[in-house]
């Protein structure tokens, strides 16, 4: 009996220890991780930009064959970048293309992206061809949005990302008009221009953009084009790729694999 009681006490003590360890240790770990991140953040902020940008030219590849239209990227982007979830503004979105061909061979293309792709409805008809196309800022080499900004609030970084300085933007929306891809919008809360940054705060720390991170099928690929071994550099070199609206002369930096000609 005593042995039993003791053993029960032992058990309770051990259980309490385990429980305590389970609660305290992760909390400590989290604090440690935050400290590391903060240190990294400070290190990045104090680093001269030439050093931060050296040897980098970020690139993005979208494989339209792989996208399944789950729009996890859309939601992840909104959460990561604090874009209001209930407003019709998007840093990235997914388009669905349904192509119907009649007996005479005439094509009808139906495109939609309800709530940026978060609210796709089930189809009641079977199209002859269907596919999804994720869209985001093309981080153009020759960005018209940067050209037209009257105060220089939007600029292209040395590692190839177009950013908006929220402290300088006057909210005139000229850049929104100038972007041929509809990639920009006025932030509904901050009242300044907003757009995809390829999660600059993440990629500067060696992480992947949120949309790339959550894509379950690897339709979105991100990396350094100057690193010849990176997946994006290899794909850009070997795959059959196309950019959006090449005739605009914007020289986009998002490359699409197997992009259908109906996509603008």
């Amino acid at each position: 009996m005593t042995k039993d009681k003791l053993s029960r006490r032992d058990f309770l003590v051990s259980a309490a220890k385990v429980l305590a360890a389970g609660v305290v240790a992760p909390a400590g770990g989290l604090a440690a991780a935050q400290a590391v991140l903060a240190e990294g953040k400070n290190a990045i902020q104090e680093m001269p930009v030439q050093q931060l940008w050296a040897g980098k030219e970020w690139g993005f590849v979208v494989d339209t064959q792989k996208c399944i239209g789950c729009a996890r990227c859309v939601k992840a982007c909104k959460l990561e970048n604090k874009v209001p979830l209930d407003e019709e503004v998007f840093r990235t979105w997914v388009e669905r293309y349904l192509v119907f061909t009649d007996d005479a061979g005439d094509e009808e293309v139906r495109t939609d992206s309800p709530n940026g792709g978060l609210d796709f409805k089930q189809l009641d008809v079977a199209p002859d061809k269907q596919f999804f196309v994720p869209k985001l800022c093309n981080q153009c080499h020759n960005p018209p949005c940067v050209q037209v900004c009257p105060v220089g609030a939007t600029y292209r970084t040395g590692d190839g990302v177009v950013l908006v300085d929220r402290k300088r933007c006057i909210g005139c929306r000229y850049c929104i008009q100038a972007c041929p891809y509809g990639a920009r919008f006025l932030h509904p809360v901050l009242k300044v221009a907003d757009k995809c940054t390829w999660c600059y705060h993440r990629i500067s720390h060696g992480m992947q953009p949120a949309c790339v991170e959550v894509c379950p099928v690897g339709a979105r690929k991100f990396g350094n084009l100057l690193d010849s071994n990176s997946q994006v550099a290899v794909l850009k070199k070997k795959a059959r790729i196309r950019v959006l609206k090449p005739d605009m002369g914007t020289k986009p930096n998002v490359y699409y694999i197997d992009l259908d000609e109906v996509v603008e």
Partner: peptide, 24 residues
């Protein structure tokens, strides 16, 4: 119309010369 009307004069203080609007 500006989202940030208090920054309106930046268009003259820090003009971006490639922008048509900066001349306003």
């Amino acid at each position: 119309h500006l989202g940030q009307p208090l920054r309106a004069f930046n268009i003259m203080f820090t003009p971006h010369l490639t922008s048509a609007m900066a001349g306003f």
